[in-house]
Design a protein around this nucleic acid. Structure first.
Lengths: 250, 250
DNA sequence: ACAAAAGTGTTAGAGGTACACCCATGT
DNA sequence: ACATGGGTGTACCTCTAACACTTTTGT
């Protein structure tokens, strides 16, 4: 049992410290968050995360926890640390778990943990989730249709979406959430999903083009109506916008 | 030695986890940060901070670390966790320290720590620093004239000032940094100190008044020239502005 | 021809910058 | 009277919300 979940044992990790990542993906027009559940916790979803090796940077631990899920193309940024001593309910009160009582794994899991939370941005289209033995089930959960989650993960998700709004002001979040090329409609839908309010079509278009960080690539005909132009980020202008502290907000 | 610095021993604390606070104070027109140094570290200044009791909320630990310095009227907010495994240099390489080698205190201090950092806002005028035995020397350091600090504390300070700029957009930071009553000149000076750029007098005045969260109290004659009006925050409107997500920015 | 979706133009208002001007005080 | 600093007015600019109009496609 221990070998299955902790092939290296638990001594290699820092006690009391965990990392979690709220991975956002955008499937037009829905903003989604990556969640999983594993056999011992059957009825609730959890955020990806893990523990920190004794000489590992916490940022590296966050990246590693996603790599285990098959995600290596991801933008990560730390946002908040949750440190309520009772944020994780005592395991004796948790029903959806079936580790043997008194096992080393239970001892490890029942200590107090503070968790350093990151948000992650991935391209929903190209992100293929690995179905590893450890993680029985992975899925994208709609941010606005939250389902039952373990511990305080549901509030971590909603907290993180609010913080993402601030990020949107100072950081071109869309670069890491959209495919290489995308339409204005998709980009605007993404902004609307994060801000949770409609944005005027014309105004959005003009503002984004005036920033000068995206350029026209081609056209695309979707279902009906006029074909839409497709765009991509100009890498050079994009990098420049980061150091110039451009305002991307609405 | 152990009793002097850790009267309860070290077992009462979570290992590997520390908290630090960047306490800002404003003495017109300088933005200051509270630093201290204690005997074993003679040549470098340090941020206030401490360790977390095993069943204590990390926020509570941050408050407690300031209470030890005699500060109990303070607004605190968590901003960032620093988790580089080598952020604290090996004690063998630190010259300004004189704990006995091999002592329990050295064992505690030489473990790896991640530190959860908060910013704190206090009223500079009414904050009297306690000169406790543990803290030989306390002082306010000018944010823009950084002095030598231990570990990575200097970069924590500069990082935190940048994050304070974002806070300024969404949160009436001034409420907690100014005295109960203050002039427009003082308030504007505070904004300029945080943003590190000049702001037009008339524009600032009108914007602040239009927010409707401050009200005129009295007048005050300083040195020469026309007396200035003094203002205070209207508690009710202030509280209201917090839930309405008002924009305080420039 | 019509609907649908994308692209473009236009107007009005809000808010900020920059600067000029006026007012109250001490010397 | 003058210098000094606080209070107020204003013209200009930028941004954006709102909505109308035009263009390009499929049916």
């Amino acid at each position: 049992m221990l070998e299955k979940y902790f092939p290296e044992g638990t001594d290699v990790f820092l006690p009391h410290v965990a990392v979690n990542v709220v991975v956002f993906g955008y499937e037009h027009p829905a903003l989604r968050v990556l969640v999983f559940r594993m056999p011992p916790m059957n009825n609730s979803w959890a955020l990806p995360g893990g523990y920190v090796y004794k000489s590992e940077h916490i940022d590296a631990a966050a990246y590693r926890s996603l790599k285990m899920l098959g995600i290596d193309q991801v933008f990560l940024k730390q946002i908040q640390t949750f440190g309520d001593p009772f944020r994780v309910p005592a395991l004796s009160e948790v029903k959806d778990i079936d580790f043997p009582a008194g096992s080393e794994i239970m001892k490890w899991a029942s200590q107090r943990f503070i968790t350093v939370v990151y948000y992650g941005l991935v391209d929903y289209e190209t992100t293929k989730l690995a179905q590893e033995r450890l993680y029985r089930e992975c899925k994208w959960m709609d941010v606005y249709k939250p389902e039952k989650m373990i511990q305080d993960h549901a509030s971590i998700v909603s907290e993180t979406r609010k913080l993402l709004i601030n990020e949107l002001q100072n950081f071109p979040v869309a670069k890491n959430l959209l495919a290489d090329s995308f339409t204005m409609n998709e980009m605007r839908g993404l902004y609307e999903a994060i801000l949770n309010r409609p944005i005027d079509r014309g105004t959005f278009r003009r503002k984004m083009l005036s920033l000068g960080i995206i350029e026209k690539v081609d056209q695309r005909k979707d279902a009906r109506g006029r074909p839409s132009d497709t765009y991509r980020f100009n890498q050079e202008k994009y990098n420049q916008s980061l150091v110039e502290e451009t305002k991307f907000g609405f």
